[in-house]
Each structure stands twice: as structure tokens, then as C-alpha cells.
Design a protein around this nucleic acid. Structure first.
Lengths: 107, 107
DNA sequence: CGTTGACACCTAGTAACACTAGGCATAGGG
DNA sequence: CCCTATGCCTAGTGTTACTAGGTGTCAACG
């Protein structure tokens, strides 16, 4: 996976992963890896800042929890986050569709 | 179309547009607009530097031509460009497939 | 004949973003 | 006791698409 491929689509992925229910950062990484069929194996330095950005944007809310002596920051999708998920999903479909159209024309 | 959506996929689009035959920059913009169903309407400041980058990378070759008093730089796909097109097309398919997998999991 | 618009090219600077490379801390197994 | 996995964080870097300008030709319109 090339470095720049994700640019602009990471937010959608994170919203989609958190959507089913509250998830902490480390689990987001693992779930993203699993759900993508091991295509997306993203480093922490990518995920954590992105989660912070989404929280600042009001799409995620977080709270600390503790599990077996380990502290976790658990993220949930806000209402605005769900709207953003829906909107960005549609944008993705439009984008991917247009990409396919152009690629189909290439010899 | 959000600003960042294209990041990392523009090169593939340009290679795909030039693939059918020699094309000049301005025509690339128009063809990209047409072929994408008017989803990709990219400014010159995006296309020209990208074409230069692809030429520097050895994926495109260019030469000047003149048509009705107007000079054009006409780009053609090199052998390495065709390899890159094939490789990036496969990468795109993998990427898009993984995106769909993750999105399918979201509630 | 001056202006407007389409055609056709160019580039310096900017903002955004994923990633690198570090750091800190706890728990459990060898 | 060290190593791995779990779990979080951030300053700095490199790439990239885009903004905002610039140059020049040609045809059409008033």
C-alpha cells in the first residue's frame, strides 16, 4: 500500500470502525487490520493523531477507562459523527465510481 | 469532492488518461472531466506539476507541437509508464476493495 | 479596435495529512 | 530480568494537491 493512498480517506475508515460501538485506539488499529483483510496495517502515529482530529472536529467523543491495570481512551461516534460517516461514505462511492470510469477508458 | 480525496491517486488517473495515445496537458484536464462523468474537474495548477513529476519519474515523455499557432506539450506513456499504470491499477483495486470491506462492517 | 473568453502553458507558496521515530507505562511469560 | 504485547502520546518530515498569480495566441463581439 503506497504511502499516500490513504490521504483523505482515513477519517472515513476510522468513523466506520468506531460506528458499531465504543472502541479504544489500539483496538481501532486491530479492527482496521482485520476488517480490511490485512490490507490496512496502520502505525499508531497515524491512528492516534487522526482520532484526536476527529474528536476536535466533534465526530468522536472519548473517555478514559481502565481494563486490567491498563488505561484506555474509548471513542464513540457522536451524532455529528454519524452524519459525517454517511456523507463521507457517499463521497467515497462517488469518488470510487469516477475512478473506475476513468480506469475503464484506459487501454 | 473533498480536497484530499485525490491524494496519491492522481498519478494513476493521469497515466490512465494518457494511455490511449499522445495527449497534451489541457486535453488531459478536459478528458479527465469527461471520462469521470464530470466528477474530476481539476485545476491547471494540479495537472501541470503532476505531469512534470510523472515525466521526471520516467513514466511520461513529452515533446512540443504547434497547432493553429498554439504551442502544446504532448505527453506519451513510456514503457515504464505502462508498467506503473498496471501496478497502480492493481494497487487501486486492492485499496478500493479493502475500503469496501471496512465500510461494509459499519452500522 | 479594444475587450472578452477559450485555449494553452507555467510556478512559487501554502495547507493538510500520513507517517517516522522516538518516548512512557503496565502486564505476563520465558 | 528482559522481551513482547498492550496502550497511549507527539514533534518533526516529506509528499502532495491546490491557490493565485503570471505569460501568450486566437476568434468573436461590440
Amino acid at each position: 500500500m503506497r504511502r499516500e493512498a490513504l490521504k483523505g480517506h482515513l477519517d472515513l475508515l476510522l468513523l466506520a470502525v468506531v460506528a458499531p460501538g465504543p472502541t479504544h485506539g489500539y483496538a481501532v488499529i486491530e479492527e482496521l487490520r482485520r476488517a480490511s483483510g490485512y490490507v490496512f496495517d496502520l502505525p499508531e502515529g497515524t491512528i492516534y493523531p487522526a482520532l484526536h482530529r476527529l474528536e476536535r472536529a466533534g465526530f468522536l467523543a472519548s473517555e478514559w477507562s481502565t481494563n486490567e491495570g491498563r488505561r484506555r481512551r474509548v471513542y464513540s461516534l457522536t451524532d455529528r459523527g454519524r452524519e459525517a460517516l454517511d456523507a463521507q461514505r457517499q463521497e467515497w462511492q462517488a469518488f470510487a465510481g469516477a475512478m473506475q470510469l476513468v480506469l475503464r477508458g484506459a487501454t
